[in-house]
Amino acid sequence: MTISFSYDRKQVIQALRYHFFTRVEIRILVILINVFTIAAAVLLYLKKIQPFSFLLFSTLWMALMLVIWRILPNSIYKRSHTFRDEFMMTINENDVTLTTERGVQHWPWQRFSKFIETPYFFHLYFDNRSFFLVPKDAFANITDQQETRELLRRKITNNSR
């Protein structure tokens, strides 16, 4: 199956957010900041701490969410030329081939460690930090999308590292 696509900025930003929140260290950090902020709120209510402590943890929480939700995805989007290219991708039983005006790249299925499906994309991971986004709206119909999903499940889930 061959698809042609380019990226929509808002969808890519949302996909990058999904990527960050799937990272274990980010989730642990968010949970810890939330726990400390809630604990600070309870202790403030019980008059065990000064309002400054609650303000400090609330500020940390806001700063963390601002960085993860806005700054990080936007900076990655702006720095990457990939999101401005036009792509042709061929997906078959043997490999995935990506074609741009700059060249052609072939990836055998063994190259991928996992895939994640989000509302707008299939994230094809090479390792924990590098991945390629395949937009779902690039498929002609829902049947092609489902066939690709099944192919990804068959070919990639057995490659976990």
Rank of each mutant, 00 (worst) to 15 (best):
M1S: 08
S4A: 11
D8Q: 14
K10H: 06
Q11P: 02
Q11V: 02
V12Y: 14
V12G: 09
F20P: 00
F20N: 10
T22W: 09
I26D: 00
V30W: 01
V30R: 12
N34E: 06
N34R: 05
A39T: 06
Y45C: 02
Y45G: 03
L46D: 12
K48V: 14
K48L: 15
F54H: 04
S58V: 07
T59C: 09
L60G: 11
L60P: 03
L66F: 15
I68W: 04
I68G: 00
I71N: 02
L72E: 05
S75Y: 12
S75N: 11
Y77K: 00
K78R: 12
R79C: 01
R79N: 11
T82C: 01
T82A: 12
R84I: 00
F87S: 08
F87Y: 15
M89T: 13
I91R: 11
N94T: 10
D95A: 15
D95Q: 15
T97D: 08
L98W: 04
Q105K: 15
W107K: 15
P108R: 13
F112E: 03
S113E: 06
S113V: 12
I116E: 01
P119R: 05
Y120T: 03
L124T: 15
L124G: 12
Y125S: 07
N128R: 07
F131H: 13
L133R: 10
D137N: 10
F139D: 04
N141K: 03
I142N: 11
I142D: 14
T143R: 04
Q145F: 01
R149E: 02
R149L: 13
L151S: 04
L151N: 03
L152G: 05
R153I: 11
R154I: 07
N158W: 01
N158A: 10
S160C: 07
R161Y: 08
